[in-house]
């Protein structure tokens, strides 16, 4: 029996009738058309299906939609705002952090959660935060470099915001 549920995904409300045994991954992809979230192993062993649940990275392949009705779900489609890319997305693109791109949505969401919690992570902290996301193309190096670059850009932006007058000084 399908159940009618409400999901909040990327700030939008979706009413959807789901079978209780459908995972969030399946519902995002097959019912909501949010195909940016990827299927890699279906058993919680790769991280490709990572989404944020109230800002926290979890695996959508091991999440029941019925259990996350109250939560704010963020998928890769929600990382950009009105067509403006998240600095992480820019850095991943510019610095070659995405090769085949299949692990990339999950990587980006794990990285976004990290930077929100820790705006200037060390290389070791980045490795720890991404320890649940497997990448088979890059050897991870370019991913670290992109996250570090995005962190620098983000904190530069924050600096500007904190000192709005600074830019006006001669």
């Amino acid at each position: 029996m399908r159940e009618l549920i409400t999901l909040r995904v990327n700030g939008e409300r979706y009413e959807v009738a789901v079978l209780p045994h459908r995972t969030l991954l399946e519902v995002l992809r097959e019912d909501l058309g949010l195909i940016g979230t990827k299927h890699g192993c279906e058993l919680g062993e790769c991280g490709a299906c990572t989404v944020l649940l109230d800002g926290v990275p979890v695996l959508s392949c091991l999440t029941l939609p019925l259990e996350v009705q109250g939560a704010e779900i963020t998928t890769i489609e929600g990382l950009e705002e009105r067509g403006r890319l998240h600095p992480l997305q820019e850095a991943f693109a510019e610095l070659g952090a995405a090769q085949c791109g299949y692990c990339t949505p999950g990587m980006l969401l794990s990285a976004a959660a990290l930077l929100r919690q820790n705006p200037r992570p060390t290389r070791e902290e980045i490795k720890q935060a991404l320890a649940g996301n497997l990448c088979r193309c890059t050897g991870y190096t370019k991913i670290y470099e992109a996250i570090e670059a995005a962190a620098r850009r983000l904190s530069a932006v924050h600096e500007d915001e904190r000192q709005p007058d600074a830019a006006l000084q001669p």
Binding site: I35, L85, A93, E94, A98
Partner: peptide, 11 residues
């Protein structure tokens, strides 16, 4: 950047 970089990083 790769020509498909922006399509991969945005899903």
């Amino acid at each position: 950047p790769k020509v498909d970089a922006y399509s991969t990083v945005t899903g």
